[in-house]
Amino acid sequence: MAEALEKILKEKSKSEPEAFPNSSKGYYKRYASFSDYLNNEVHPFVNQAAMVLDIEKGLGFLTDHGPGHIQTVMRRAWDLLGHSSNVLSGYEVYMLLTAIHIHDAGHIRTGRKGHEKASRPLLNAQLGADSVENAFIYSIAEAHGGEVVPGDRDKLARLVPRPFASKKFNMPFLAALLRFADELADDYTRAARYVMGEGGIPHPSEVFHAYAFALKSVDVNLEAKEVQLSFYLSPDDATREFGKLESKVYLLDEILDRTFKMYHECLYCMRYFPAELQINAISVQIEFMGDSEVHQPINYRLKESGYPKLHAQHPSELCGKDLMIDGRVIDGITLKERIEKKIQEHV
């Protein structure tokens, strides 16, 4: 079944051909063919290929990265767009959908590490089209994770709105939309439920499946400007430790960590979202299953409130570049010394 965004692409390729480079002819067709190919030949095998590549690290038992995950990312992006077809041009929808399709496909070549950088051959081979256009799609997809260079994770800042064949598209927003939609695309459908029940998940991957399994609902509420997450935990799951890479962790701690990371991602991606689509809170509801009430629900809302809290303790930590003069951050005493020296030179 075609996702809402895919339907919009189909409609817009007919209704606004001028929004596409060199007319819309071929864009939807090309997308449909590309999508079919990936849904049949690539996405179903991402988990298997990654498992083989990462088997030595014990990291290969990923949560679902198949066609279902791609659909979920598309739905979350649609949710984040407020179910409006007016935010993106037809051409931007095309760029977004193709980028969503390839964003995780690199697992097949590299396994988990560096997967975001490994999808370009697939794009060139299967989408055809112009290498430049493909490179833009690649950049949108590639920005969903990883680092620019070691120690620098600020990928979105490297993207700028670009034209292709005189058709402009908002690359930073599209990349931020994909990145945040992917962040929200974890839920119980991604967990290997039966294997979990059988205790078959390898130790390093246990908690990732447990987290996904517990996450029953992800809702984007644009009116409240928040994302609402609902977790349901069984008493068993709430009281045992799950394997996480080489260590162990309680599920609640994992939920706290992951939702906090989600909030960070939210703040980061929202820098590139238009005002009417801003999300500024992650609302979390954790309930416990059982015949009798085993524990009261735990609800929290991640949102900036009160007096702002920053990691930085001084303006120079936020904008040192602007305050640096002759290799030193300017302060009162430095300014005094500089002025006095200048005056002396003129005497």
Binding site: N22, A129, D130, S131, V132, N134, A135, A165
Partner: peptide, 9 residues
């Protein structure tokens, strides 16, 4: 017009 560029990047 710009014909498609199909080379490496």
């Amino acid at each position: 017009s710009f014909p498609p560029y199909s080379g490496s990047i």
